[in-house]
Amino acid sequence: MRCALGPSPAVEVEDVWYAYGPRSALEGVTLQVPAGAFAAVIGPNGAGKSTLLRLLLGIERPQRGRLTIFGEPAGKVSHPIGYVPQGIRLPRGFPLSVGDLVLMGRYPTLGLGRRPSRKDRERVEEALEQVGMLPLIRRRFEDLSGGQQQRVLIARALVGDPCLLVLDEPTAGLDPAARAAFYAMVCDLQRARGLTLLCASHDLEDVAQHAQIVILLDRRVQAIGSPSEVLESRALAQVYRFPPAHHHHPEKEGPA
């Protein structure tokens, strides 16, 4: 399925505030991500990256402000949103198979108490095929490498046919080769399906290479623009407290 790219932005955040008790996480965040773009959210630990993603996914509600996804309020969207976490931690030895894990991505479309059909299982196979993991469908998830586990989590996110994929530091703990392979695969999927990607990341090099929009967050939006604008900005140096680096990045084309 290819996502239709309408004129309205995929993600719109307007003056959003959120605090964990006395600790402020987001202060008046406003931003837009056009449909079909790969937007990376960067910032140091505690900058509010994961909080922003949790608000968009409807896991938390903002204390002030408004978030919409394809024009619908976050948490009440009719389109499924694909979510790829850093990883999942199962109890040692728990025999969850790759196929069973990916099938969970179909649950929102099934409804409470309904059993998956043969069609749902076929969709699982298609999603695993797309990420190159179909041969491992019966393997235990815990027996896979970190890179393979992330591919399976991408398949779980894709199997619900989302137009927005939210990735929360998906390459944390992967080696450089696995990170490069992961981003290459995600970008291929983005182009093939017209997906909008919103990815929280610490990997500035990867972001420079693959994202079209970079959002520098440190409780507020400190900078937003193309990778070259943000990664060579004074704001980056101030937020991370280091001199601006010269990252190699081919200029990205705009959203397809």
């Binding site: 409807g58 896991i59 979510y83 976490p85 969970m104 649950y107 929102p108 409470l112 108490g113």
Partner: peptide, 23 residues
């Protein structure tokens, strides 16, 4: 038995289950 798949999802990845709209 009725909510087996929901309990499984909740146990495997509570955040994703919440994001998927499960109660």
């Amino acid at each position: 038995v009725v909510f087996f798949k929901e309990f499984l999802f909740l146990g495997v990845d509570e955040e994703a289950a919440k994001a998927a709209g499960l109660p």
